[in-house]
């Protein structure tokens, strides 16, 4: 009894320490550089650069923080790295040209969008085996999962749909037609809303996942900027659902949206061709990858200000942050 309390206290202490120090590890895939930049979230300096395989894009960290999964698109595989050593330990059978993926809330399996083959591949990350392949629309890309893990959503770029897949049966039970070239799907933490960005359509659809209907379409306007340059890609929502961040690609801006009204509040100028984003686990910071300026921007979430930009490798694409 005493022992377990101690253990709990130590665990709590470690957690509290990590929290206040805010020293998380940030991993950025550099699509053209074929590398992964590793950053420290306290100093915001690149501590290490490791080889990422051919054309690394989608990236995520296992829920225990021990493994790093990277879509090496031109290698047709998902590379797995040990976060302690930063060495590759194995690969996962991803299907061809993996681009984006998402982990089940339990940490397993991994759902991967295969752009070339119109399928979503489901992979067991412990057994390293393929569990299922789900046929979806043309050029699957964005992947989102409901907080209860029961529904995985895939967006297909040429079919222009969000496909709702039952994670028990691997059957599509619902399709929602959105605007041109849907890129990213993001549930709110309570599962009540799903945001789907459409890059060429220039909108973010707010979807009621239960009803399968679009409740609102968010569009973007920046004075002096051609409307076709406002191309929403990555989407992130704070845990309380109050702030929604949308990366606007070649507009070099991140739109900040009020999660209650789903109206744009402001635009933050970041680097060029802003693509994907990730929060630090404490949600103090949001990191954006800026593909054409070879850097990442750090946004202070509370004050909604860009506080820093950090040079990484060539054409940064994806970003993930360690949970601890």
């Amino acid at each position: 009894m005493i022992r377990s309390t101690c253990a709990a206290m130590i665990a709590f202490g470690a957690l509290a320490y990590a929290h206040t120090a805010g020293a998380y590890t940030v991993y950025v895939t550099n699509e053209k550089g074929n590398t992964i930049s590793v950053l420290d979230s306290e100093t915001w300096e690149v501590t290490k650069t490791i080889p990422g395989g051919q054309r690394p894009r989608g990236i995520t960290v296992s829920h225990d923080g021990k493994e790093l999964y990277v879509c090496a698109s031109d290698d047709d595989t998902v590379r797995v790295f040990d976060t302690a050593t930063l060495k590759q330990t194995h690969t996962l059978p991803s299907g061809p040209d993996p681009e984006l993926f998402i982990l089940h809330p339990s940490g397993n399996p991994l759902y991967i969008a295969n752009e070339d083959d119109n399928i979503v591949t489901v992979v067991d990350v412990e057994k390293h085996t393929m569990i299922a392949e789900v046929p979806v629309g043309v050029e699957p890309e964005g992947m989102g999962i409901s907080p209860d893990g029961k529904v995985v959503v895939n967006t297909s770029e040429t079919t222009n749909m969000a496909h709702f897949i039952n994670t028990d049966t691997y059957e599509i039970f619902q399709n929602v037609l959105v605007d041109q070239r849907p890129r990213f799907a993001q549930f709110t933490a309570d599962g009540a809303k799903l945001y789907v960005s459409a890059e060429i359509g220039g909108t973010v659809s707010v979807i009621d996942p239960a009803a399968g209907t679009i409740t609102k379409k968010i569009s973007f306007q920046v004075p002096g900027m051609a409307p076709e340059a406002l191309q929403p890609v990555g989407v992130r929502v704070t845990g309380d659902g109050k702030k929604v961040f949308v990366a606007l690609g070649p507009a070099n801006r991140v739109a900040v949206i009020d999660g209650d009204t789903d109206e744009v509040v402001e635009y933050l100028l970041v680097g060029q061709r802003v693509w994907q984003m990730a929060f630090t686990p404490d949600e103090k910071f949001l990191i954006t990858t800026n593909g054409n300026s070879n850097d990442v921007s750090i946004i202070d979430v509370e004050s909604v200000k860009v506080i820093k930009s950090v040079q990484v490798g060539e054409q940064p694409w994806g970003v993930a942050v360690s949970p601890n």
């Binding site: 061809p96 299922a132 046929p135 599509i172």
Partner: peptide, 22 residues
Amino acid sequence: TAKTIICAFALGAVAFVSASVR
């Protein structure tokens, strides 16, 4: 070559399921 290897792996997987579209 890479694709061939992946396909062979998929066929070899025990719990392989090909889900159909509604």
